Simulated scan of single mutants.
Amino acid sequence: MRRARALLVILALAGAAPAAAQSAPAETARAAAEALRAAARSLQDAEGARDRVAALSETIRAYEDGLAALREGMRRAAIREQAIALVLDARRAEIAQLLGALSGMPQSPETLLLHPAGPLGTARAGMMLGEVTPVLKAEADALRTRLEEIALMRALQESAAQTLAEGLAGAQRARTELSQAMSERRDLPRRFAADPDRLRDLIEASDTLDGFAAGLAQTEGPTAPENSLPGDFAALRGRLALPVEATILRRFDESDAADVSRPGLVLATRPLALVTTPVPATIRYRGPLLDYGNVIVLEPAEGYLMVLAGLAEVYGAEGEVLSAGRPVGLMGGADPRTAAFLDGASNRDGDLRTETLYMELRQGGRPVDPEPWFTHDKD
């Protein structure tokens, strides 16, 4: 009985959260688990898809979104649990006082009959208990809801390990199959035949990305996709999706900690994230360049170049024409182990984005601020 009263007092002090708020972490985690199951089905269907590259690209994105959502659900659950613990710890003395007072309350009708004030005291005590009982019942109902929520959170945490393991393995399998499909495809049209010797000479003569891009822009001959006009591409300003799910780490010409600024965007991405072309474009260059790691240079229209640098793996070949949304590579890093994934969520790390992609947009041979061209969360 005293333990039950103690729980009621603790609930009253902690405060009962609205039902919608209580269910948010659970609903997020459930939806994420279903998204991962749907991604697994999509991976199976991709084996017989007519456009296997497109199917696998969609599958990888589905895995990425599902894993991020599951992590967010677990993060919210951890935050709620920590918040309740902090409230209870801050009111420990008050809880002790209230428990002492409650322990002195009569616990049976026989005790009321022996009230020292006689029948009047007994009547008053009965009235007081009659007023307190509905309050205690309401608190008991709220406690039951909270305890059910806690049990659900713990069940989700226990099942998250298996769900995560399957999701991480499925995502890696999809990436491997995509890389294989990209190496085997032979159906992409080519706008021009690359000149390896000329590219090699240009790389050797360039000591900066700016110099390389400027030299590449001066290449003669038709290289942009057919029917792709500068005006058509300019009309897409403000409507393009970022080439990867990311947040902006540094903006155009913004200095970093070493007081170095670059004429492009530094994007923070998840490990092994899929990178796609946001617009139909011709591959002008792909491969290692200076200290930028793997670089891919796309030409969406005559006079425009889009530079993506810092990829771990790049797809395609110079001269190939890509449609919007086609994969161009993968970011580096490694999928976290399931335990590390859960530990990060419990530590409120949320959606960790540890890899960086550098993006430049060039018009007429000179870099312009890419940010106004893209839709993204304003971080």
Rank of each mutant, 00 (worst) to 15 (best):
L357W: 07
R80S: 11
S206T: 09
D369V: 06
D369T: 06
I150P: 05
M359W: 01
G215R: 11
R186E: 13
A93V: 08
A340N: 10
S42K: 00
R144N: 09
L8W: 02
N227Y: 10
A160V: 06
P263C: 06
I95L: 10
L361E: 08
E81G: 07
R337H: 10
L305R: 12
V307G: 02
P367C: 10
T59G: 04
A117K: 14
G126K: 05
R92D: 10
I203R: 06
R146K: 06
R71M: 02
G365A: 08
A39M: 03
R337C: 15
T356R: 15
A312S: 13
D256N: 12
R239A: 11
A273W: 05
T111W: 08
L36W: 00
L178A: 05
V260C: 09
S346N: 12
P243M: 01
E34F: 05
A125Y: 04
T375D: 12
L342W: 01
R61N: 03
G329V: 07
S206M: 11
T145S: 05
L357F: 07
R251L: 02
S261R: 07
R190W: 05
R37E: 14
D379T: 11
A17Y: 00
R353T: 00
A46C: 07
A181D: 03
E166K: 02
G316I: 05
R286S: 15
A324S: 11
E184I: 07
G221K: 06
P336R: 02
F252H: 13
T133C: 11
W373N: 03
R198D: 13
G211N: 11
I283D: 04
A20K: 09
G104N: 14
A96T: 09
S179D: 06
D89N: 13
E110S: 14
A165T: 08
L143C: 04
E220M: 09
R61H: 10
A174R: 01
L67H: 00
R262A: 05
L8N: 02
G100H: 08
I283V: 13
G344S: 06
Q157C: 10
T356Q: 15
A161N: 07
M306R: 06
A224L: 01
A14V: 12
